[in-house]
């Protein structure tokens, strides 16, 4: 027993290191100065330029971008993550409520329309999506960035599953207690869904924050760049430079991963629950 547990731990430690080391490289390297990284390669130990580097990437334009600071990009990422998560939750809760709790003509038809969006990811309809959004004058706007991403029905699907698992008797008890559809939704269903909302919020925030392809197409104006969107620009500048600012590039990468990683780690149990429940 002892012996086998030893190997279990060994494999787990190796696995954890495999996941951890690349990010440790990114973090440590960002605390050195560009010249020493250029000479000595990526670093695994802390250097003395941590504060300088982060101050510089957060507050100064230039370096990797012409006009935008890291702080602006961070803000844009936050807008995208939060806007996407809030928008998705509100819209999909309403839709799922209608689908599960109402009997009405065309209900099934609308259900299938909404769920057909699960069939085709954004990537396979990217070109016409881009043209339509641009045609609507939504290129380089927050709404153009966020709303088209909400089209997929994943949130509606999660909430539908959850609402279906709410005992039938609750809506019956509520009807006997004199609650109409609106009252039932606000007084009972929404408070009951709190944990589910939190779980979906986390998943959606991470999903929104991490969007890449759509922001790449729809935001060409640097002031709307998110951190994730900015990665390619950063890399391209980095390649072109004589002595590249690897420390700053890594610092921006660390900033791009920090908020979603923190949220996932802190709200781990909700997040895992939400993720695993969605499979059912």
């Amino acid at each position: 027993m002892k012996r086998s547990q030893f190997w279990d731990h060994t494999i787990l430690v190796l696995g954890a290191l495999f996941m951890l080391v690349p990010v440790v490289y990114a973090l440590m390297t960002s605390s050195h100065d560009a010249v020493s990284i250029y000479k000595e390669g990526l670093q695994l130990s802390p250097g003395g330029h941590f504060v300088d580097t982060y101050k510089q990437v957060l507050t100064e334009a230039g370096g990797f971008t012409k006009s935008v600071t890291g702080l602006t990009m961070l803000w844009n990422s936050l807008v995208l993550g939060l806007g996407f998560a809030f928008g998705k939750i509100i819209i999909s809760m309403l839709a799922a409520y209608a689908i599960v709790y109402f009997r009405f003509p065309l209900g099934t038809f609308f259900f299938w329309i909404i769920f057909s969006t699960l069939l085709l990811p954004l990537e396979v309809r990217i070109l016409p999506s881009y043209e339509i959004v641009q045609g609507l004058g939504m290129a380089n706007t927050y709404s153009g960035l966020i709303i088209p991403l909400i089209a997929s029905a994943t949130g509606t699907f999660y909430f539908r599953q959850f609402f279906k698992s709410v005992p039938d008797e609750l809506v019956e008890a509520a009807r006997i207690d004199g609650a109409g559809p609106l009252k039932f939704f606000i007084d009972i269903l929404v408070p009951l869904s709190k944990t589910m909302i939190a779980a979906i919020f986390i998943i959606m925030f991470v999903f929104g924050w991490n969007q890449y392809l759509w922001p790449t197409l729809i935001t060409t104006d640097e002031s709307l760049f998110t951190l994730v969107r900015g990665m390619k620009q950063i890399l391209q500048v980095w390649i072109g430079a004589q002595i590249p600012d690897t420390n700053q590039a890594m610092a921006l990468a660390v900033l791009a991963m920090l908020p979603p990683v923190l949220i996932v780690v802190i709200f781990q149990s909700w997040f895992v629950k939400g993720l695993v429940e969605s499979e059912k």
């Binding site: 696995g15 954890a16 996941m19 951890l20 991490n210 994730v228 990683v261 996932v264 780690v265």
Partner: peptide
């Protein structure tokens, strides 16, 4: 330790 990388965006992973 084994799950947190889920939160990292593919292009960020790509850059590193």
């Amino acid at each position: 330790l084994l799950m947190w990388v889920y939160a990292i965006a593919p292009p960020v992973a790509g850059l590193v």
